[in-house]
């Protein structure tokens, strides 16, 4: 095949990746918008190790080459991720586009990446030298810059098996389909024995990297709803400082206002 390699196993893919100058091609929906004329693709769609969705004792493991359609149709996938995936583009794109591609693209507008930030997911990166597991927040280095080494593949996404059912998610696009996020917000809040045991929020499409600030969210953890109300003002003020939208075609003021509104609504919907 000229300008392309087909890999049918992870081992084979990693071998090619180590030797050749290739661009990993998963769903192709970002790469093909403006493809490099001389790009040589390494096709990943047939690597079964990258297509599984399974649970083990610790994690839900989603193969990086799973398409959004496969994710939406899988019963193990938590609702928050399904809801976000179902709002990506349109069916024909979701049939191709993969979760791994959405992450490795490095964009803060990635709708599935937002959910993975909010859930503190981890990424399993594998090369022929070995493998490492990286929290998603450490994977993103800047606008369109990631920690992925040129001989590495993102093979799996690992989501902690915590309760994700009490979630808040809102994507704000320009229309109801085929929309790129202008602002997106995802949050999870769990209460046990009257106390907040975890609060995880993430803001997408506002900055170069999805904003996830566990240090701020920690303000609410360990508190009752009533106690949380006491620090609410301080908590919101901290995010007001933390969210600095970058300039874009949609004004920073608008995106900031939406972020703060959604954050407040998230708190209110949890009685805070």
């Amino acid at each position: 095949m000229v300008n392309g390699y087909q890999a049918t196993s992870l081992k084979e893919a990693l071998k090619i990746l180590a030797k050749e100058s290739v661009t990993p091609y998963s769903g192709g929906t970002d790469l093909m918008i403006d493809p490099e004329e001389h790009a040589t693709f390494l096709f990943l769609a047939r690597i079964s190790e990258m297509k599984n969705i399974i649970e083990d004792t610790e994690y839900l493991r989603i193969g990086a080459a799973c398409t959004f359609t496969e994710i939406i149709e899988n019963e193990l996938v938590p609702e928050i991720l399904k809801e976000a995936a179902a709002q990506i583009a349109a069916p024909a794109i979701r049939n191709l586009a993969t979760i791994g591609g959405n992450i490795c693209n490095g964009s803060a507008k990635g709708d599935s990446a937002l959910i993975l930030f909010a859930t503190d997911a981890k990424l399993r990166l594998v090369s022929s030298r070995g493998e490492r597991v990286l929290p998603i927040a450490e994977f993103y280095l800047g606008r369109k810059k990631t920690a992925l080494k040129s001989d590495e593949l993102l093979v799996e996404i690992l989501i902690d098996r915590i309760n994700l059912s009490n979630y808040y998610y809102k994507k704000v696009g320009a229309r109801d389909a085929l929309a790129i996020s202008r602002v997106s917000f995802a949050a999870i809040l769990n209460v046990a024995d009257g106390k907040i045991v975890n609060c995880m929020t993430a803001f997408g499409a506002v900055s170069d990297i999805i904003i996830r600030r566990p240090d701020i969210d920690a303000m609410l953890v360990g508190k009752t709803t009533k106690e949380a109300k006491v620090v609410k003002k301080e908590y919101i003020a901290a995010y007001d400082q933390a969210i600095i939208p970058i300039k874009g075609r949609i004004s920073a003021e608008y995106r900031k206002a939406v972020c703060m509104n959604l954050l407040r609504d998230f708190l209110e919907s949890n009685g805070i």
């Binding site: 095949m1 392309g4 192709g28 093909m32 191709l96």
Partner: peptide, 21 residues
Amino acid sequence: CSVIIDGKLVNSCMVAMGYVE
């Protein structure tokens, strides 16, 4: 440019030839 690949609707402009092997 929609076509159906393996029973699924896709945009054929977003598909590299190597993918259809």
